[in-house]
């Protein structure tokens, strides 16, 4: 087989040289110039988004990022999804339990028992499954609107705020599907709880 009968072939020596020089060029262009130029443009055009979409409370203190879920153990707050890393954003991850793993059932049953203890009056068949399953990132900032509504009666009793007020709050903080069609309706737990603390004052 003679396929390489092309004239003016580069010698193998010069291929090494060109390969080395193109590698160095691309390390500089793709590895340094591109991310730095992107950072510059991003900081210029979208400073808030580029720096993690931080949220402040009413007195101006940064309390977190609206994109990163927080842990709310206190039952007088709306609670987010199960997080095996306890929403510690220094890492990210989940248990990675397979559907057939007995540990999964055990963990879910513990969450269910805890839920039933804290919310005795809510019919269990109305509790959405996202409340007792681990999110993919362990940092999911959202729950489904139904999951927020299922917590209203508990919070209403603990904070002596009327259920109607709380339901209105949940509706106000329910985000629709993107462009009306993509993804799912959701409630940002941190923003909802910030509003809840305002309401309680």
């Amino acid at each position: 087989m003679k396929t390489s009968v092309v004239s003016n072939e580069q010698s193998n020596g010069s291929i090494w040289a060109v390969a080395l020089r193109s590698s160095l060029l691309l390390i500089v262009v793709c590895g340094i110039v591109y991310p730095l130029v992107s950072t510059g443009l991003a900081q210029l055009i979208f400073p808030s988004q580029a720096n993690g979409s931080m949220v402040k409370d009413s007195s101006g203190n940064v309390v977190g990022s609206e994109l990163i879920g927080q842990s709310f153990k206190d039952p007088s707050f709306f609670q987010g999804r199960v997080s095996s890393i306890d929403n510690d954003a220094a890492g990210s991850g989940s248990n990675n339990y397979a559907p057939s793993n007995p540990e999964l059932l055990k963990r879910v049953q513990e969450s269910v028992a805890q839920w039933k203890k804290e919310n005795p009056e809510v019919p269990f068949s109305q509790v959405p499954v996202d409340l007792i399953t681990n999110s993919g990132s362990g940092l999911d900032p959202h729950i489904s609107p139904a999951s927020a509504l299922a917590q209203v009666s508990r919070i209403s009793a603990l904070r002596t705020i009327s259920q109607d007020q709380l339901k209105a709050l949940v509706t106000k903080y329910t985000e629709g599907r993107d462009l009306g069609v993509f993804g799912e309706e959701r409630v940002n737990v941190l923003k909802l709880n910030l509003a809840l603390t305002e309401l309680s004052k």
């Binding site: 399953t133 681990n134 993919g136 959202h142």
Partner: peptide, 8 residues
């Protein structure tokens, strides 16, 4: 199935 998935 929501185990390992994100609500959004």
């Amino acid at each position: 199935s929501m185990e390992g998935k994100e609500v959004r």
